[in-house]
Design a protein around this nucleic acid. Structure first.
Lengths: 341, 341
DNA sequence: AGTGAGAATGTTAGCGATAACACTACCGAA
DNA sequence: TTCGGTAGTGTTATCGCTAACATTCTCACT
């Protein structure tokens, strides 16, 4: 490693000595300061290369008071939605020259979110993105005095921090209207778990579309996002195959469970019952039949959340409490058709 | 915020003044040093609470030379495998009192991995986990002089760093033997992309099981892990429905594509062709039919990689080049059955 | 040649914490 | 009483870097 630094990793002073300049000049080269002679710059760069010098960002962060690291608080990053969002955030952050530190919560509650945020602030992150899809998590955003920029993803109507989200209600409306336009009398719904804001937005949009069209609003079935819960709801619906002709399921995984239940019970999709899901996971296109669903652009959500965060970082006191809404898209495939088709 | 620190966040000296002690005593309280009188300790804690003081971990890291942060380099964390592994790593790290900084690579190559590692070292991480499922990524581990502990997940037979991995070949053997034991004459295989070590381990295990049983080794079909590539391979196989009775597919997503292709072509599973997948994603149980597959315990992989890393951190010079192999499990479901069943 | 503006470089003083050592009490043993 | 040991606390130096200011050098213009 270091040619002549006695085993320990070289520091700026070692480079300075090797290049015959002061450590400040090395710092200037590293920070692209304009007032450095080209010849000096290259001598410094050579010395850096020779010694294998790496800047100590910790020391730098101490004096600049910026770590160029952003914190992300999320919940169960093995789920497709959170995983995609976090991925989008990480990519956008890196493109902007920032690092990302992640805290994945096992269970979500006010205390957990608050601790995670404090934890990240102690670490010296410059800003925090909270992927807070549950009401309880969003609640935690209300009682904090961060002193640093925070943005929530899917964070409900919190008044404390800016929010970036997909228009869940609009997505549900697209799905429901699509089924109504196909000629279905009404549309049933399997919703996501109680505490989730996304689940509630989707219920709201579905209900809104039905009442706007003056249709009956069937009783809501409940799931927990898992294929199994969809399967169970599907078994129930299969028993009402005459009555039910269209179902809007709150996510694609549950839709898969519904499809499985229908297959087992001999209910044909879409001939007897049409299904529309939500998320457009990579698998949905290859379900049997391929699933009509609502696509969420998680990448856009990630990018916007970083934009908003960096905006706050630069504006400083501006503290814009914007609400950035990403529109969803309907993707029509084989699982939806006119009734009795 | 700070009651009397003039707007800026309080520092240790402010707490010291408020509690009427020296800053060193505050530090001792914070670090649970034994030689502090109980009364003093509580006075300090009170002052901390009063001022809303939070320790500056950046300054701490500078002097202790430990950040209690680990770096993770991964590839496409929206895929189930990497996402689950990273999740396991994050949980294990946090349980051990460490933070996690993530770099998700978009494309994987030597330079990308090397840069990511350097990037993390500059940030002052105490150790790095490289989730390096491709040969090219694993290669990057060979030409680095990190100076800090590194462990590879699925990193091949690299001699430079310890490796934690799932026994891919063994999983493939389980899958293949299962199909042979059901009475199939031989087993076809749809492999994963060329550069992936996991894909190669699975091919190897499949081929090994067939030759051990003295069976013909059919030509290998290739996919890229995506459902679409499985679909395309499935179309091909469907055309040989007489000849082919069993297929071992290198992952569950491709299996879904195969199932879709077979459904379209009227090939019944498992009656005409049996299918076994790999990964046991949450969806597989609800495929039609439910997929027989090989489960990988990603959580265990994450935990072990952290164990190995922390081991290196504590041992220091020990530099044990262990290789930790997590055994896979066969999960039998409806997609596999005796031929012509 | 003398001057002054600006470019190029050096010097010093922190950032906020811990480490190392110094010091004061207070204790029991000699 | 004196001494050594230790618990409790304070003082100073230091981690590796950048900010702010100080200094030198260069060159166009008088």
């Amino acid at each position: 490693m270091g040619s002549s630094t006695g085993g320990r990793p070289p520091v700026m002073a070692d480079v300075a000595k090797a290049a015959g300049v002061s450590h400040q000049t090395v710092s200037r080269v590293l920070n692209d300061h304009p007032n450095v002679r080209a010849e000096t710059r290259s001598r410094v760069l050579e010395a850096i290369d020779l010694l294998g010098y790496r800047r100590n960002m910790v020391a730098r962060a101490l004096v600049t008071r910026h770590s160029r690291t952003l914190g992300v608080v999320s919940f169960d990053t093995t789920l497709y939605g959170p995983a995609s969002t976090v991925y989008g955030i990480e990519q956008a952050a890196r493109d902007a020259g920032y690092f990302v530190s992640i805290v994945s919560l096992r269970t979500i509650d006010r205390a957990g979110v608050r601790d995670a945020i404090n934890y990240l602030i102690e670490q010296g992150v410059d800003g925090i993105v909270v992927v807070a899809p549950q009401r309880s998590a969003a609640g935690a955003l209300e009682d904090l005095s961060p002193g640093i920029p925070i943005v929530a993803v899917e964070g409900g109507h919190s008044v404390q921090v800016p929010v970036v989200c997909v228009d869940q209600a609009e997505g549900a409306r697209l799905a429901t209207d699509h089924l109504l336009k196909l000629g279905h009398e009404t549309v049933w719904h399997i919703r996501g778990p109680q505490d989730w804001l996304e689940a509630e937005g989707r219920v709201e949009g579905w209900r809104g579309a039905l009442s706007a069209a003056g249709r009956d609003i069937p009783e809501v079935l409940s799931g927990d996002w898992s294929p199994r819960s969809g399967y169970e709801a599907g078994k129930l619906l299969a028993g009402m195959a005459g009555e039910v002709t269209a179902v809007f399921v709150a996510n694609d995984q549950m839709s898969l469970g519904v499809l499985r239940a229908f297959t087992e019970e001999g209910v044909r999709v879409p001939e007897q019952i049409s299904i529309v899901g939500f998320d457009d996971i990579p698998e949905s296109e290859f379900f049997s039949p391929p699933l009509t669903t609502v696509r969420q652009d998680f990448g856009a959500v990630g990018r916007h959340s970083i934009d908003v965060l960096l905006g706050q970082l630069e504006e400083g006191a501006a503290k814009v409490l914007e609400r950035f809404v990403v529109p969803p898209d309907l993707v029509v495939r084989g699982s939806s058709a006119p009734p009795g088709a």
